[in-house]
Nucleic acid binder design. Structure first.
Lengths: 190, 190
DNA sequence: CTTCGCTGACTAACCGGTCAGCTACTACGC
DNA sequence: GCGTAGTAGCTGACCGGTTAGTCAGCGAAG
């Protein structure tokens, strides 16, 4: 009953994010999204055009959220890994979204350019840090970044951990292991 | 026209593996599987019962193939990582299958037991290797295994790399990076 | 009274699953 | 060797439920 376009759009987007994160593109149901948001299905088409277009919008918003929530620090890779770990742990949906995207959409040419650009910026910063001696230079910067990200996200399966005491302890142990491993990859041998 | 049950079953299973690897459970189409195998859709139901049951069978076969194709060697983690990398590079479907499974099926209780069992066997072997001084003991064995596997599979997105000279070079560079990284995690500091 | 936000009802296509029945192969009586 | 009955393998046609997407129109706000 709000009769407010921007608020409606936000509610639909939120509901769509949940639905896509849980079921993917093929498994998502437009009716379910509309119902969860408390609107009629048609509003989705008024605002976003189609199911596929909606997924694109949802996904881009998620990526933007990740990118500016955890900034890249070339001279502190362990810290970066730790923050990435934390973010994905507290936002399991976004990780699921990314995985659905890679499976159902593949890596399109348009994405490749964006990824390459973002990656080369990070690589360049990391290469500089390596040249300055702040980071061990044994691994090529581009590959090192991928390995670090991979380890930081190794445990994010989308299903949130039970919040028991034991569960929490396991999570902090994992976080510590990730940070420690990245330290071993980036610190010069004594 | 073969009129041969076992051969038919194998053909259907092959087609189903391709279809599920590419589209997941929700995105897979039974008609497409049957057509790809050169049979009528009904054969799928005669042999496998339902789409979901078919996926289970496909998935279990894939897991079995991975497990006995690349054996775990606690005292040579870099080698294990390299072999895992190679296998997933040459069998991109199986990795996709595993990812579809984790997204669409989640981690069910039945799986948890099997995973825990397989993991604890590996952990135990790795802990022994660490105690013997063959592997650096800085990281807990269970966590170390996950990190290693995660790095070894960091690049398997399911889309096979173009087989250009440049593509091949990039792949070998990645493989080298993985092995090297695992070495750094497992070799004692000099 | 006009416009924006919104709804309920509808549809055409799709999709998993079923069923009656056809066809080729086998076994067996002669 | 030869019909013939039985059966396993297989097919095309069908069905009911579901789903993305559409459309005409209603009601509130300015």
């Amino acid at each position: 009953m709000a009769r407010n376009s921007t608020a409606t759009r936000a509610l639909l987007l939120k509901a769509a994010t949940d639905e896509f994160a849980q079921h993917g593109i093929a498994g998502a149901r437009v009716d379910r999204i509309a119902a969860a948001a408390g609107y009629n299905k048609n509003m989705l088409y008024v605002h976003f055009g189609s199911k596929d277009a909606l997924f694109d919008i949802v996904f881009e918003a998620a990526v933007a959220e990740i990118v500016d929530a955890v900034p890249f620090t070339a001279d502190d890779l362990p810290g970066y890994a730790g923050r990435l770990f934390d973010f994905h742990f507290s936002h399991p949906q976004l990780m699921r979204l990314a995985r659905w995207h890679s499976l159902e959409r593949g890596v399109a040419n348009a994405d490749l350019a964006a990824i390459a650009k973002a990656n080369s910026a990070k690589s360049k910063a990391l290469a500089a840090a390596q040249a300055a001696g702040a980071v061990r230079a044994e691994l090529p910067p581009g590959l090192l970044i991928t390995l670090v990200v991979s380890m930081a996200t190794a445990w994010s399966e989308g299903t949130p951990e039970p919040v028991t005491t034991a569960g929490r302890a396991a999570v902090t142990a994992r976080r510590k292991a990730v940070v420690q491993a990245v330290e071993q990859l980036t610190t010069s041998r004594s």
